[in-house]
Amino acid sequence: MGIQLAFYFFAAMTLGFALVSLFHKNVVHSAFSLLGTLLGMSGLYVTLNADFLAMTQVLIYAGGILMLLLFGLMLTKPSETERSLKRIFVAVILAGGTAVLSAYKMAGTVWSSGDGELPASTVKEIGLEFLRFDEWLIAFEFASIVLLAALVGAVHIARRRFPIDDTNALLKAEQGGAN
């Protein structure tokens, strides 16, 4: 009973905030309502017995990725003519088609289910699976290499090589030199 109430609460929170961030005009408000979506997802993970994942969701998504998005918003200028009827039409077609297709496929499917029960706390089990050589150790180490390479690459890409105001002058000078 309590699990059901929690599921309905967190599902409503997730989808409601996602809808707000889809329809709101202000970019910053949209980003902040994404925070509600991510926290609701973490609650859904708790109802699914995934406590470590819920914690990771709060730490990485709400604490890291959302902060990155907010910095991106603050450092760029929102475009003025943001809405166009053509784009919205395409989006409605795409979203409606996906929803109908998924509902049609899900209605007739019987999902597999296994025996047993998840442990009450998954933290220790996940750690053991990660460190076992024949399970996930190689993928775990590769994930750390991917993260390192991505962060070094992000620093390199975002580094400013010329002052913003001189961009066009610099481009013209380059083109003039090439000719």
């Binding site: 395409v90 979203a95 996906t98």
Partner: peptide, 13 residues
């Protein structure tokens, strides 16, 4: 919702 957001909005963020 995510798909609609990717398709409808003209802002990379």
């Amino acid at each position: 919702i995510g798909l609609a957001m990717v398709a409808a909005r003209r802002n990379l963020i």
